[in-house]
């Protein structure tokens, strides 16, 4: 190695400092992941898919599997807004299966969401229609059921929001931490090579 190829230290430091900073000031950083989440009541399930940063995953395949046996329950597609919905088969509802909803965009991105049976089934969904029961007499069980259904509906946006918040946002300290790790590794490599140099008396080129 010719010594003229050695980078002057000040130029190297400048390059190291400037290049990554160029990216920090460019458009807002988004992670790169396909997110899925699903919610529902009784047999009707709704869901949404999006890439981190909010970009909708349009017209992609969504598979619904039994979360334990991984047997396929049904397959559906997202619409142009990245949303999907399907009706669960009667037997799935009866068996109270936990469902694994997975979306695959076909280009190597994949996301999953576990939809537990308790989330789409009311615990007393087999009772008689609560509204008719209420007509006859004030039935606490029926009132409870109505409240539960209303609450479930009201909680959907909150659940959606919580699911979205679970996604880790890219933070500046992560980026700087990553760059720090790389520089640290470079230092480690330089140290090993310097040790080799002192033991052999010259650089290995």
């Amino acid at each position: 190695m010719n010594s003229s190829h050695i980078l002057p230290p000040q130029k190297t430091v400048l390059l190291v400092a400037v290049l990554p900073l160029l990216f920090l000031v460019s458009p807002p950083a988004h992670a790169h992941k396909l997110n899925v989440f699903a919610w529902g009541s009784d047999r009707q399930i709704y869901g949404e898919t999006f890439f981190n940063g909010g970009r909708k995953a349009k017209n992609i395949t969504v598979q619904v599997q039994n979360a334990e046996s991984h047997s396929l329950v049904l397959t559906t597609q997202t619409n142009a807004l990245g949303e999907f919905q399907f009706t669960l088969p009667q037997q799935v509802v009866q068996q109270q299966l936990d469902l694994l909803v997975s979306a695959d965009s076909g280009d190597g991105h994949r996301g999953e969401w576990l939809l537990e049976a308790s989330e789409y089934l009311g615990p007393e969904s087999t009772t008689a229609d609560p509204s008719t029961a209420l007509m006859n007499t004030v039935d606490t069980a029926a009132v409870r059921e109505i409240v539960r259904q209303e609450l479930k509906r009201e909680l959907i946006p909150i659940k959606k929001d919580l699911a979205e918040r679970q996604e880790k946002k890219v933070r500046l300290q992560d980026i700087l931490g990553g760059i720090g790790c790389i520089i640290g590794l470079a230092g480690l490599l330089a140290w090993f090579q310097a040790k080799k140099k002192t033991s052999t008396g010259s650089y290995k080129t």
Partner: peptide, 18 residues
Amino acid sequence: IMPVALLSSAFFVAGLVH
């Protein structure tokens, strides 16, 4: 070593630019 680390950092951060 330093140029490799620099370009590795650039790659690391570039992945965030959608």
